Amino acid sequence: MNLLTLHCEPQLGKAALDDAARESLLAKLPDWTIRDGQLTKTFRFPDYYRTIAFVNALAFVAHREDHHPDLSVHYNRVVVNFSTHDAGGLTLNDFICAAKTDALVATA
């Protein structure tokens, strides 16, 4: 399954992924972890300009996928947290958006 080719779908009324599915998908995402029920990763940048450029690019992806992360923005780093509130946990949408977030940095 190539997460980059998939798109998010509404999750209202759907169940969160089970442990086995989460772990299988997590294996496709280097440096992402599951903490407090969220898929999380810290991205580091050399300066504030690049940090904000990343945030703006991520905002565009999140809007296009209609799946929005919680962000903690600092001078040279951004902590990205994905979870699906409608499903009460992690869904495929979170892993799709995490892969697309990694792709932003890979192409920069």
Rank of each mutant, 00 (worst) to 15 (best):
T107S: 12
L17Q: 14
D66T: 05
V61M: 06
D86T: 08
D36S: 15
G89W: 07
L58Q: 10
L58T: 10
T40N: 01
C97T: 08
K14Q: 11
D19V: 08
W32Q: 09
L3S: 05
A57E: 13
P69S: 06
E23F: 06
V73N: 05
H74M: 09
Q38L: 06
Q11E: 13
T84H: 02
T91Q: 13
T107K: 14
E65T: 00
K28W: 04
M1W: 06
L4Y: 07
H74F: 01
H63W: 00
E23D: 13
G88P: 12
M1P: 04
D94Q: 02
R64A: 14
N2D: 15
P10K: 15
R44N: 01
D47C: 05
Y48T: 06
T40W: 00
D19N: 08
L25Q: 05
H7Y: 07
D102R: 06
T107M: 04
Y75Q: 00
A98Q: 11
T101N: 10
T42E: 09
L6H: 11
L92R: 15
T40K: 03
A106L: 09
L58A: 11
C97P: 14
D94S: 13
G37H: 05
N56W: 04
L104G: 11
D94N: 07
S72N: 10
L92E: 15
G88Y: 13
L6T: 03
K14M: 13
F45T: 02
A21C: 06
I96R: 05
Q11W: 02
F43M: 08
V55E: 07
V61I: 15
P30E: 00
V80F: 03
L25R: 10
H7V: 05
D47E: 15
V79N: 09
L3R: 09
L92Y: 10
T84A: 06
A98T: 11
L29N: 08
K100I: 12
V61H: 03
E65A: 06
S83N: 09
G88R: 11
E9Y: 04
H63Q: 14
E65I: 11
T42S: 11
I96M: 12
D102N: 15
V55Q: 09
A108E: 14
A57W: 01
N2A: 06
K41S: 00
G13K: 00
Y75C: 00
C8N: 14
A53T: 09
L17G: 04
N93Y: 14
L29Y: 10
Y48L: 03
K100Q: 13
V105K: 02
L3F: 12
H68I: 08
H85R: 10
F43R: 00
A98V: 08
A108M: 14
A108T: 03
A27K: 13
T40V: 12
R50N: 14
H74D: 07
Q11N: 09
L29H: 04
V61L: 01
A62H: 07
F54H: 03
K41E: 00
T40E: 03
P10C: 13
V105N: 03
A106K: 12
K100F: 09
T5H: 08
R64Y: 07
P46G: 10
D18L: 10
F54V: 05
I52M: 14
R50C: 07
A59C: 06
H67Y: 05
S72H: 11
T51S: 01
L3P: 04
D47M: 09
C97N: 04
L4Q: 10
T101L: 12
A53V: 15
D31S: 01
V79S: 12
L3T: 07
I96D: 10
A106W: 08
S83T: 05
